[in-house]
Amino acid sequence: MKSYKTIKKTGLSEDIIKKSRFICQVKRISSEEEGRNFISQIKKEHHKANHSCSAMIIGENGEIKRSSDDGEPSGTAGVPMLTVLEKQGLTNIVVVVTRYFGGIKLGAGGLIRAYAGSVAKALKEIGIVEIKELQGLAVELTYPQYQTFANFLESQGLQEVDPDFSVTVTTHLFLDKEAVQTTLEDLTDFYHGKVSVQEIGSKVVEVDLIPMNQSET
């Protein structure tokens, strides 16, 4: 599978801008239908709101993109929201920003900043992950060897998974496929050729990322 970035979890963020209440709700999705159902659900929950604008991107390559201004002036809500998602490189995500009008008009520029800023704020608060497939290695070590294994992990920036302590220690590493050969060579050098390593199945993991600095526009 190709790695891609998406939202960490379903969540929401609220903001008050010139007395208008903006509620941004975010959900990870796998299809356009799922995204539309989420948008409909939000509109029903906030049927008294003035607008519930939306944007979604779907597919590992972000091939499906949709946005809606939901009654706001054309180009002031849905597209700015979608642009935030694009700049972050996100996919398989839908965002809905619900606005309760507070009596003060924001103007086109103010609306763009408000809707884009609501999405950027939600992404920062909720978190972004990279979903990727990693190749597994099973490493068998003697107990004396295992005492120095932490030094190897630190030098490689790796973490072990599910060590099993029996007659010997069998532990596991998961890393990018491109790094497998180099890691095998480094392990062999570290233990002077006296180490047993086997490739095992791959594993899909989620790695926490820090959102890029995002302009409200």
Rank of each mutant, 00 (worst) to 15 (best):
K27Q: 15
T83N: 14
Q145T: 09
I57D: 04
D162P: 01
I39Y: 04
S68K: 00
G78Q: 13
L82R: 03
L153W: 03
E125Y: 09
A108C: 09
I58N: 11
G62P: 10
A179Y: 05
V169H: 06
E178R: 07
V26D: 15
T148P: 03
V180D: 10
S74L: 07
V139A: 13
E86N: 06
R99M: 07
Y146H: 13
R99I: 06
T148H: 11
K8F: 06
K105C: 07
S166I: 10
D162Y: 14
Q214A: 13
V197G: 01
G35Y: 04
L111M: 02
M56C: 06
S40L: 15
G71N: 08
N37I: 02
E63K: 02
S31Q: 11
H172C: 08
T168Q: 12
Q214P: 12
N61W: 04
G89F: 08
T183V: 11
D70I: 01
L12N: 03
Q159L: 08
E63S: 02
R21G: 02
T91M: 13
E63D: 05
I200K: 10
F101K: 07
H51Q: 05
K2Q: 14
F149M: 09
T76H: 05
P163E: 12
E199C: 12
K87D: 09
I17H: 05
G201H: 15
R66V: 00
I126S: 06
M1S: 15
L90H: 09
G110Y: 01
Q181K: 10
S3R: 07
S155R: 13
F101T: 09
I23S: 12
G117C: 14
L158C: 10
R28E: 15
K177A: 15
E140S: 11
N50A: 10
M56T: 02
E206V: 13
D162T: 15
Q159Y: 05
N92G: 00
E86S: 03
G127Q: 04
T10G: 05
G89C: 05
H47V: 04
A114N: 06
E206P: 01
V129F: 13
E86W: 03
G117K: 07
D176Y: 08
V94L: 01
D15V: 06
P211C: 08
F22N: 06
L184N: 07
D164W: 04
N213E: 11
P144S: 04
E140W: 00
V129S: 13
S54C: 02
V26M: 15
K44L: 11
G78N: 13
E154R: 06
E133L: 08
S31W: 12
G117Y: 04
F165R: 11
S202H: 13
H172M: 10
G117L: 12
